[in-house]
Amino acid sequence: MPTISMNVNGTSVSAEVENRTVLAAALRENLGMTGTHIGCDTSQCGACVVHVNGKAVKSCTIFAVEADGAEVSTIEGQADADGSLNVIQQAFQDHHGLQCGFCTPGMIMTAAALLEENPKPTEAEIRDHLEGNICRCTGYQGIVNAIMAASGQNSAIAAE
């Protein structure tokens, strides 16, 4: 089996995987990082979104061997070193951006990618950017509010 090397959340790791192993499975099963969730395994739900070389991708739809040599960021790397939540995570907690939490890792990673390229998105831009992330319990308003708040904008929340 091939051995792949990646930098995951700033740490160099290697894993022995099959060619058919998708990145989500390599993270969860080989590296024990179960924060990345596999919801649908058909590229639709977005629970498995991680960043590969700075780009948000669905880790169930990229082979681990394709991420050989890549810089990967996952939900485990989002909190600060002392364990305190980062701005986006805190905003999700403050604004009811999650209920069961299953979709949350993907939501947070997608939101982080959005704010990286567009620090002050409109509500419409946020909703458009979340097209590939499905939440089936809390609804989207809390998630949108959280991302607005994380970007330092409170208009949507104030309007409630």
Partner: peptide, 9 residues
């Protein structure tokens, strides 16, 4: 096309 993550790949 698709969604942002799909467009990145």
């Amino acid at each position: 096309i698709g969604d942002p993550a799909v467009r990145n790949r």
